[in-house]
Each structure stands twice: as C-alpha cells, then as structure tokens.
Amino acid sequence: MTEKTDFKKTLDAYRAKRGQFRILDVPDLQYLMIDGHGDPNTSPQFVGALEALYPVAYKLKFASKTGLGRDYVVMPLEGLWWARDMDAFTAARDKSQWDWTLMIMVPDWIDANMFAAAVAQVGTKGPPTRLGEVRLETLGEGRCVQTLHLGPFDEEAAVLRELHHEFIPASGLRMAGTHHEIYLTDNRRTPPEKQRTILRQPVADA
C-alpha cells in the first residue's frame, strides 16, 4: 500500500499555537492559485474560485498516486488577503474592498505537465467557469510570524492588530509581504467558534 504523506504533519510551516506569535522561516512552497476581489461571503468570484481549485487538486493527487506511486493528503484551503487601505481588512472589515488569492499547496514533485493534464481532465465534462484562471506557482515567503486563531473569521481583527502593531515592531521587524491565512477546518462544516485558522505575516528587519 502506498504511504500517504500529510504535509500538515511534516512541515513546520503548518504548526501554530493559539495565543503565541512564533517567528519562523517558511520554505518556498508550490500552490494551485486563483485570484479574485470582493466579499468572500457574497462574491460569485469566490465561489467560482473554489469550484475550480478543488477538482484540479484532487486530479493531481490521483495522478501522483497512480502515476508516481506517491500519495498525499490534499492540503487545506489557504488565502492571501490585502486591500489598498489595510484598515479595510484589520479594522473596518470592509470586505467589498478586499483582494485575495486562494491557494492549495501541492508537493514539489507536481510539475507543469502534470498540472496541465489535470486541468485538461477537469475540463472534459462540465468545466468550472474559472478553470482557465487556475495556475501553478511557487510562493517564497521566507521569515514570517504566525499564530493560531480559534473562532469566527470576523474575530481575527484584534489578533491582527496585536500582531501588526505590537509584536512585529517590538521584535525589531516590519511587515514585508501579504497577509496569509490557512484554514485548518472546513468552515462549511465547522461551527464558527471551532474554526481553526493559521494567521501568517511575512516580515523583514525593521
């Protein structure tokens, strides 16, 4: 039987504790990515992004298992989030102003040919409307600070203010990249109070 790798357990970048800000070096990782704008609760773009990402992710898992003998657990959804005025994200929570990139991490042995084949397979019958916008890209974040948030997404703001305005400056650092979230639980099936989200912020020396 092919051994199944769970990168959430093997990669340090997927470890975080509630109430603790941890500085770590995140390695370059490869993702399926798709971009969008607007409120994730109401935006058709957001729904279309999910409908395109997941079928490709599962086709790649199947291709890796059957073609390479390397099985792995499909990774959780992740997102990069930003706005022209970051107060729209951390304070006002004006979701209509948000830009985002949704992502699913895939192993480094997944190459461009495997990706193209997976997209083609997904597109053979009833293709998702945004399938052609999914891309395979490596993200290099380097030095980051992260923590675990337990609870509804709209309660992240206080944690982010502490991270951005207290911990990072007090550590002799500055924000140097895009806010990153890793959704360890499926919010469609998990009560808001039990949702577990890694909050990550790339940083550099101040």
Rank of each mutant, 00 (worst) to 15 (best):
T5N: 03
K8A: 12
T10W: 05
T10P: 02
L11P: 01
D12S: 07
Y14R: 11
Y14N: 08
A16L: 02
A16H: 05
K17H: 14
K17G: 07
G19D: 03
G19Q: 03
G19W: 04
F21G: 08
I23K: 13
L24I: 00
D25W: 05
P27R: 04
P27H: 06
D28W: 01
L29H: 12
Y31M: 09
Y31L: 11
L32C: 15
L32D: 11
G36R: 11
G36M: 10
H37D: 14
H37P: 13
D39E: 12
D39W: 15
T42I: 12
S43V: 06
S43A: 14
Q45N: 02
Q45R: 06
F46Y: 15
V47F: 06
G48P: 02
G48V: 00
G48T: 01
E51N: 15
A52R: 05
L53P: 01
Y54Q: 07
V56E: 04
V56D: 07
L60I: 08
L60Q: 06
L60F: 00
K61D: 04
F62T: 14
F62K: 15
S64C: 09
K65C: 07
T66A: 14
T66W: 12
L68I: 04
D71T: 10
Y72R: 14
Y72Q: 14
V73S: 04
M75F: 12
M75T: 05
P76Q: 01
P76N: 02
E78W: 11
G79P: 09
L80A: 10
L80G: 07
W81P: 11
W82P: 06
A83K: 01
R84V: 10
M86N: 02
M86D: 03
D87M: 06
D87L: 07
A88V: 00
A88L: 02
F89H: 05
T90Y: 13
T90M: 03
A91D: 05
R93Y: 15
K95G: 07
S96D: 06
S96W: 01
D99P: 00
W100P: 13
W100A: 10
T101N: 06
T101H: 03
L102G: 07
I104Q: 10
V106P: 02
P107R: 08
I110N: 00
I110E: 01
I110G: 00
D111C: 08
D111E: 06
D111S: 10
N113E: 04
M114D: 11
M114T: 09
A116S: 12
A117F: 09
A118E: 01
A120W: 10
A120H: 13
V122I: 04
V122C: 08
T124L: 09
T124M: 07
T124D: 05
T124K: 12
T124W: 03
K125Y: 15
G126A: 15
P127H: 09
T129N: 02
R130V: 05
